[in-house]
């Protein structure tokens, strides 16, 4: 592993993120809209269960949404890099494709975790009480999920050449991933076909892990679907596979 290369890929991404204020703004505004408008509105018709209101129920899902968008956005920048030529500078350097993928995924992880922490900080406003351990574990899970989703985005980006594909990815991959992740409704209540799709979705396990940590409940309508251990193991396993496959996808020459 080339640590200098990984380091500089992360630093570049971070600098660009800081310089692009509008990106940070929309990254924070999106989850707020979902949380307070959708969550706030739906709370009126979805009754609270086991002392958990709907807005509290979707809070882990909104964290997942934050990570999903910012991680994907960060790794999709690879398509921009290809389009505007910078990718060649990286590909012609004596750096393994594996390090490039790890560098890009780490960038996505850091940027999306920062945003998730900002959103997570809103917990008192929706009537939640989190201990320090809960908060800290949630941040760790966010980071892990951020890395996994970013590596998934890199794999996607390695198959697309131009920015036209960006809206395709957003509409046909990212949005369905969000709706089929248990963010808005428990996976166990989904019809069986959708349940299969949700179980194939990495985001499902991230959101479920966050729900395990933020809303610990053994049973009930609003409780998590899987155990925290299986959630975390599955996220890590998926990340390893994506990084490996993504590295291979970059390695191939025409």
């Amino acid at each position: 592993m080339e640590f200098n290369a990984i380091y500089v890929i992360v630093v570049r991404e971070f600098k660009k993120f800081i310089r692009e204020r509008s990106r940070l703004f929309s990254a924070i505004a999106r989850p707020l809209l979902w949380l307070f408008i959708v969550g706030g509105g739906m709370s009126r018709i979805v009754p609270a269960g086991e002392g958990v209101s709907y807005i509290q129920f979707i809070f882990p899902g909104i964290l997942g949404l934050t990570i999903l968008f910012s991680s994907i956005f960060s790794s999709i920048s690879i398509i921009w890099d290809k389009e505007f030529g910078f990718m060649k500078e990286i590909l012609v350097a004596p750096v393994s494709r594996f390090s490039v993928v790890v560098g890009k995924a780490t960038s996505g992880m850091i940027i999306s975790t920062i945003q998730a922490v900002i959103v997570l900080g809103l917990f008192p406003f929706i009537g939640l009480q989190l201990s320090f351990v809960q908060f800290f574990s949630a941040v760790l899970i966010c980071a892990l999920l951020g890395f996994t989703i970013a590596s998934f985005g890199i794999l996607l980006a390695s198959y697309y050449e131009s920015y036209e594909s960006f809206s395709v990815i957003m509409n046909f991959i990212v949005m369905p991933m969000f709706f089929l992740s248990g963010a808005m409704y428990p996976v166990k209540l989904l019809p069986s076909v959708l349940k299969i799709a949700a179980k194939a979705n990495p985001l499902t396990y991230g959101i479920d892990a966050l729900r395990n940590v933020i809303l610990p409940m053994e049973t009930g309508r609003m409780s998590s679907d899987f155990s925290i251990y299986s959630d975390v193991l599955i996220i890590i396993a998926i990340a390893v596979v994506f990084v490996f496959v993504g590295g291979k996808a970059f390695e191939r020459k025409q």
């Binding site: 500089v8 500078e89 350097a93």
Partner: peptide, 24 residues
């Protein structure tokens, strides 16, 4: 390259620094 492969959102120095790290 025939088409520019600089990162236009970075400064000249940052482009060079990126390169220096990349090539160790």
């Amino acid at each position: 390259f025939q088409d520019s492969s600089l990162d236009k959102d970075l400064t000249a120095r940052e482009n060079l620094l990126f390169h220096a790290y990349l090539y160790n």
